[in-house]
Nucleic acid binder design. Structure first.
Length: 550
RNA sequence: GGCCCUAUGGUCAAGCGGUCAAGACACCGCCCUUUCACGGCGGUAACCCGAGUUCGAUUCUCGGUAGGGUCACCA
C-alpha cells in the first residue's frame, strides 16, 4: 500500500505540514516553572460547580506560577452549539473571580496560539491526520453505523471486548483501489487510528498523574475514530493536537477521563508529541435518596448549577472559599492562621488535592459563607445586596434604596466589635433576616412565650409605651424594662427565676421577648435598643401600638 | 460484564509502620447572656472485611466487599 497516495487521495487540499504548525506555535516563553492550563468546555454554555472546581485548579496553577490560563471552546460537535455560550461561560466564571489570560472571548480570539475554537482548526487537525495516514498509522473506515453495531453484537455474544480493533477492523486491509472506488461512490467514512496495541495481550502503560501519582493501565488497542465523517476531529484527537500546539503543560480534567487516558497516550506517541502532565480531579458527589454516593447530576441537582448560588445570593468570595476548602485539605488550617489574607495568597498544591470524590456539603458552605460575609464591610455588602436584588428580587429594590446609608447601619447591627454576629449567609437570607426594617416585609412570625398571657402582653406593652423615651441610653432603657417586669410579677434577673420559679410568672427575658415580638415580629433578633435607634421613635411607637390593638 | 478510580466519625479530612487516630462542619451539654447570634469549655461519633509481610499494621502487599467512573462519528 502506498500510504502517500492514500494520504493525497484523502486530503488533497492539505498542503501544510506538521512542522509548519510547530513553527507557527513555538514553545511559550515563560518564566521557569510557568504552567500552562486551560479550560476546554463544549459550547453548551452550561458551567456547573464541577467545572468551576476544575477551573479553580487551572487558574491557581497558572497564576501561581506566572503561567497562562486560557479558554478553548471544544465545538467539534455541531449539535452541542448554543448561541451566546462563550459569553455565558466567561460571565459565570468571571462572577466567581476566574479570568482567562488568553483564548476565546466574546470579541474573538486573544492570544498567539489560536484559533481557540476547535471548529476553526479543521485544517490543522486534518494536516496531522494526513501525516498519520502517510505513516500508515491511520486509515479510512467505511463501516456504517449498523455494521459497527453488528460487530459489537458478535463481540458481546463471544464475550469479547467490544470495539473496532485488530480482526474486527476491516478498514485496515482495504486496498487503495477499493478505497478509491468507495470514495467515488460517495460512501461516507471516518478516519481511524491504526492502533499499535495488542488486543490479545495488551501491555501495561504507566502515567504519572499530577494528583493521583502513578497510574497503571492496559495500553489502548482500539482503532478509535480520530476524524469524523464530517471532517471534524473527535475529542481525543483534538485534545492531543490542541494541548500540544497550545503548549499546555497541565491538563486538568475530571476523573471520568481516566479511562480514555490510554487512547490519549497512544495518540501523543504516534504524533510524536511530549505528554503533558495530566491532573485528574475527583468528581463532586452527592448522597442520593438511598444513602449512596453519586455524581452530582445537572438534571437532578440544582446545587450543581452555578445559577443556584447566584439566585440565592451566595457571595462569590464565599463560594471560592468553600471550593478552596474542599480543593486543598490544608486550606482551612491556613485560613485560620491567616484570617485576613486574600485567598490568592494560599500556596495551592496539587499534592494536597483529594483523590476521592467529595460530597457536596451545603452546611459547610453556609458556615464558610458566614465567616466570609462577616469580613465584608457594610457598604460593600450593601452594594452586593443591591446588585443581587436588581436581578433576582427587583421588587425589593425600592425599599432597599429608600434606606440610603441606614442600610449600612442595619447590616452592621451587632456585626462590629470583636465578637461580631454572623447572621448572614447569602443575599436572599440577608433580606429575610433584616426584613422587619421594611414595613412591607414586616410580618409577625412568632407567638408570645407561654409565660406571658395575653393580658400581660398588653400590660407590658402599654407600660413600655408609657415610659418609652427614645433618648434613653441602653442601660436606662433596659432598667425600665426591668421595672415593668417586676411590677407585673416577673423576675428582674433570669437567675432569680431559675432559683425560685414558683415566685415569678417568668423573667425579664420573657418580657423583652414580648417587646421584641411587637417590634420585629420574631422572638429572635439582634439587640432591640439598637434596632429601635435605627427604626426611629415614630415607627417604634407605631409598632407597639399596633401590636396592642391586634 | 471488562478496565480503571476510591475506601478513616453523619460530612470534609489529617495521618504516610509504634499516635490516648488531629482539626473543621453538623449534632448534644454547660458557660456567657434580656432572645438569638458570636465567643468559651466539654461531649457523642471513625480506620470496610480477610489473609500475608513485620516484634508491631489505619498506614505496605494480595484477595474480597462496597461505592464511583468508563466502555460513541458526545465531550
Amino acid at each position: 500500500m502506498d500510504y502517500n497516495r492514500l494520504a493525497d487521495l484523502l486530503f488533497p487540499a492539505i498542503t501544510k505540514t506538521p512542522s509548519d504548525y510547530e513553527t507557527a506555535y513555538p514553545p511559550r516563553d515563560l518564566p521557569k516553572g510557568g504552567r500552562v492550563t486551560r479550560l476546554a468546555p463544549s459550547p453548551t454554555g452550561f458551567i456547573h460547580l464541577g467545572n468551576l472546581y476544575g477551573a479553580f485548579v487551572d487558574e491557581r496553577l497558572a497564576s501561581q506560577s506566572d503561567g497562562v490560563f486560557y479558554l478553548r471552546i471544544e465545538d467539534t460537535d455541531e449539535k452541542r452549539f448554543v448561541e451566546g455560550a462563550v459569553d455565558t461561560v466567561i460571565g459565570s466564571l468571571d462572577f466567581f473571580g476566574i479570568t482567562f489570560d488568553e483564548g476565546a472571548t466574546k470579541e474573538g480570539d486573544v492570544g498567539e496560539y489560536g484559533p481557540y475554537f476547535q471548529s476553526s482548526r479543521k485544517e490543522l487537525y486534518q494536516c496531522f491526520v494526513k501525516k498519520l495516514v502517510e505513516k500508515g498509522l491511520a486509515y479510512p473506515c467505511f463501516l456504517t453505523e449498523e455494521e459497527v453495531a453488528e460487530i459489537r453484537e458478535t463481540q458481546e455474544a463471544n464475550k469479547e471486548t467490544p470495539g473496532i480493533y485488530g480482526k474486527y477492523a476491516p478498514g485496515r486491509d482495504l486496498s487503495l483501489e477499493e478505497i478509491q472506488k468507495r470514495i467515488k461512490e460517495n460512501q461516507g467514512y471516518v478516519i481511524r487510528l491504526r492502533s499499535g496495541g495488542n488486543p490479545e495481550n495488551p501491555e501495561e502503560i504507566s502515567v504519572e498523574d499530577g494528583i493521583r501519582g502513578l497510574l497503571t493501565m492496559p495500553e489502548n488497542f482500539q482503532d478509535v475514530v480520530i476524524l469524523k465523517a464530517s471532517g471534524m476531529p473527535t475529542y481525543h484527537f483534538a485534545h492531543v493536537c490542541d494541548d500540544h500546539l497550545m503548549r499546555t503543560t497541565h491538563v486538568v480534567r475530571g476523573e471520568e477521563w481516566l479511562s480514555s487516558l490510554p487512547i490519549h497516550v497512544e495518540l501523543f506517541q504516534v504524533l510524536d508529541f511530549p505528554l503533558p502532565i495530566y491532573c485528574h480531579t475527583a468528581v463532586l458527589m452527592k448522597l442520593d435518596e438511598n444513602g449512596n454516593r453519586r455524581k452530582l447530576s445537572k438534571r437532578k441537582d440544582p446545587e450543581l448549577s452555578l445559577g443556584f448560588y447566584r439566585e440565592r445570593g451566595y457571595h462569590p468570595t464565599a463560594v471560592r472559599e468553600y471550593l478552596l476548602t474542599i480543593l486543598n485539605s490544608n486550606y482551612e488550617e491556613w485560613r485560620m492562621a491567616n484570617p485576613d489574607l486574600p485567598g490568592e495568597d494560599f500556596p495551592f498544591t496539587m499534592e494536597k488535592m483529594s483523590t476521592s470524590g467529595a460530597l457536596f456539603d451545603l452546611n459547610k458552605l453556609n458556615d464558610v459563607s458566614k465567616d466570609t460575609l462577616v469580613k465584608i464591610p457594610a457598604p460593600q455588602l450593601a452594594f452586593f445586596l443591591m446588585e443581587w436584588a436588581k436581578i433576582y428580587r427587583p421588587e425589593i429594590l425600592p425599599a432597599l434604596a429608600d434606606c440610603g446609608e441606614t442600610l449600612f447601619a442595619i447590616l452592621d447591627l451587632g456585626r462590629v466589635g470583636d465578637k461580631p454576629r454572623k447572621d448572614f449567609v447569602c443575599a436572599s437570607q440577608i433580606f429575610d433576616f433584616i426584613g422587619y426594617f421594611f414595613d412591607d416585609y414586616f410580618k409577625e412570625e412568632d407567638e408570645p412565650p407561654a409565660e406571658t398571657p395575653t393580658e400581660d402582653v398588653k400590660a407590658i406593652l402599654t407600660a413600655y409605651l408609657d415610659t418609652y423615651d427614645h433618648g434613653d441610653d441602653q442601660s436606662q432603657w433596659f432598667d425600665k424594662i426591668r421595672t415593668i417586669a417586676q411590677d407585673l410579677g416577673y423576675a428582674a434577673k433570669p437567675k432569680d427565676y431559675k432559683k425560685n420559679p414558683q415566685d415569678y410568672k417568668g423573667h425579664v427575658g420573657h418580657v423583652s421577648t414580648v417587646i421584641r415580638l411587637a417590634l420585629v415580629g420574631r422572638s429572635q433578633s439582634p439587640d432591640i435598643w439598637e434596632i429601635q435607634q435605627i427604626l426611629g421613635e415614630p415607627k417604634v411607637r407605631q409598632r407597639i401600638t399596633d401590636y396592642i390593638k391586634a
